[in-house]
C-alpha cells in the first residue's frame, strides 16, 4: 500500500514539464472564465499606502510617476488606475512623470480609463509631463528644478502656459509622490535622489519581483506603504470600493498559487523518495 502511494508520488513528481505548463495554463484560464469571487483582505502595506493618499487634503499636489511598461502592465496598471481614482475623488492636483519610455503610454492608458468618470480639466486638475531619459538624473532634476527639466509637457505645451505648474518649481512643492515601479529606474531612485533629500512623502506600487527590494525602505519609514503586485492592486481596489482588473485576476492568481505549491511539494517528495531508494540500492 505504502509502496504504491510512493510510486504514485514519484510518477506525479516526474511528469513532463509540458504537462505542468498545460495544467498551469488551465488553472489560470478557468477562473478567468468562471470567477469564484474569493474574499480579498487588505494587507498592512496596502492599507498604509491607501491611508497615505487618504490623508492628503483637497488641492494638495500629488505626483504619480510611471516606471513600468507593457511587460508588467497586468501587475502595475491596476494599481495606477486605483490610485488615480482615489486621487481624483479627493480632488488632488495630479502631476504625472515617467522614468520609462513606455511609461508615458501607460500613463495615457490609465488617464483614458479613469477620466470619463470625472470632470477634470487638463492643466488645472492634472498634467502629464511625460518621459525624460536620464534615470536617476531625471529624479534629481525634478527634485531640484522641475521646470528646468520639463520645459514642455508630453504634448509640447510650454510649461509656463500650464496653470497648475505656476507654483511648482521643485519636488519640495509636491505634497506626496506615488511611484509605480517595475524595476530600474523606479522607486529606489525616488527614495535615493528625490524624496529622501527633499523630505517629501513617498508611497509606491511595485511589480511583485521588486517587493523584497523595497520592504527595507518601508520598514525604515522612507516609503510609507507598498502596493505589492496584482494582489496589492486588488486590495487597493477593495479599499476604494471600485473593482477592476486586479480583483478580476485574483481568483486565477490564488488557484495557480495552490497548484504551484502542490507541484513544489510533489517535486520535493519525489526527490527525497528517490534519494532514499537509491541509498537502499547501494
Amino acid at each position: 500500500m505504502m509502496k504504491t502511494l510512493l510510486d504514485i508520488i514519484v510518477k506525479l513528481g516526474s511528469v513532463d514539464r509540458r504537462v505542468i505548463f498545460l495544467i498551469i495554463a488551465l488553472v489560470v484560464f478557468l477562473p478567468l472564465i468562471f470567477p469564484v469571487g474569493l474574499t480579498i483582505k487588505p494587507t498592512d502595506t496596502t492599507r498604509r499606502s491607501f491611508e497615505a493618499v487618504d490623508e492628503l487634503k483637497e488641492g494638495d499636489n500629488f505626483l504619480m510617476s510611471f516606471e513600468y511598461g507593457p511587460s508588467t502592465k497586468p501587475e502595475v496598471n491596476p494599481m495606477a488606475v486605483a490610485v488615480l481614482n482615489h486621487a481624483f475623488r479627493k480632488n488632488l492636483r495630479v502631476y504625472i512623470t515617467c522614468l520609462w519610455p513606455d511609461g508615458q503610454f501607460m500613463a495615457q492608458d490609465v488617464l483614458a480609463e479613469v477620466l470619463p468618470d470625472y470632470d477634470k480639466v487638463y492643466g488645472e486638475d492634472y498634467v502629464l509631463l511625460g518621459y525624460r531619459p536620464g534615470n536617476e538624473a531625471v529624479v534629481k532634476g525634478i527634485e531640484s528644478n522641475i521646470k528646468g527639466l520639463y520645459t514642455v509637457d508630453y504634448a509640447n505645451t510650454l510649461i509656463d502656459e500650464i496653470p497648475m505648474m505656476q507654483d511648482v518649481n521643485s519636488l519640495s512643492d509636491i505634497d506626496m509622490v506615488f511611484s509605480f515601479s517595475a524595476g530600474y529606474p523606479g522607486t529606489v531612485e525616488w527614495v535615493q535622489y528625490g524624496c529622501d533629500p527633499a523630505g517629501v512623502k513617498l508611497s509606491t506600487g511595485v511589480a511583485s519581483i521588486q517587493v523584497n527590494e523595497i520592504l527595507p525602505y518601508e520598514n525604515a519609514g522612507q516609503v510609507l506603504g507598498i502596493i505589492a503586485g496584482m494582489p496589492g492592486a486588488a486590495e487597493y481596489e477593495t479599499m476604494i470600493g471600485k473593482k477592476g482588473f486586479g480583483t478580476s485576476g485574483m481568483d486565477a492568481q490564488s488557484v495557480a498559487h495552490l497548484v504551484i505549491v502542490l507541484f513544489i511539494v510533489l517535486g520535493n517528495a519525489t526527490y527525497f523518495i528517490e534519494r532514499k531508494r537509491s541509498q537502499k540500492t547501494y
Binding site: 498551469i24 495554463a25 489560470v28 484560464f29 478567468l32 472564465i33 511587460s71 508588467t72 502592465k73 497586468p74 501587475e75 511589480a207 511583485s208 519581483i209 517587493v211 523584497n212 505589492a228 503586485g229 496584482m230 494582489p231 482588473f245 478580476s248 485576476g249 486565477a252 492568481q253 495557480a256 498559487h257 504551484i260
Partner: peptide, 26 residues
C-alpha cells in the same frame, strides 16, 4: 528565507503576467 520570499514574489509576478496575456487572448 529572504530568497524564498523573493522566489514567491517572482512566481506571483509571473502568474500575474500570464493572467494579463490570457485576459487579452479571451
Amino acid at each position: 528565507i529572504s530568497f524564498g520570499a523573493s522566489f514567491g514574489f517572482a512566481v506571483m509576478g509571473r502568474i500575474s503576467l500570464l493572467i494579463g496575456r490570457f485576459y487579452d487572448l479571451i
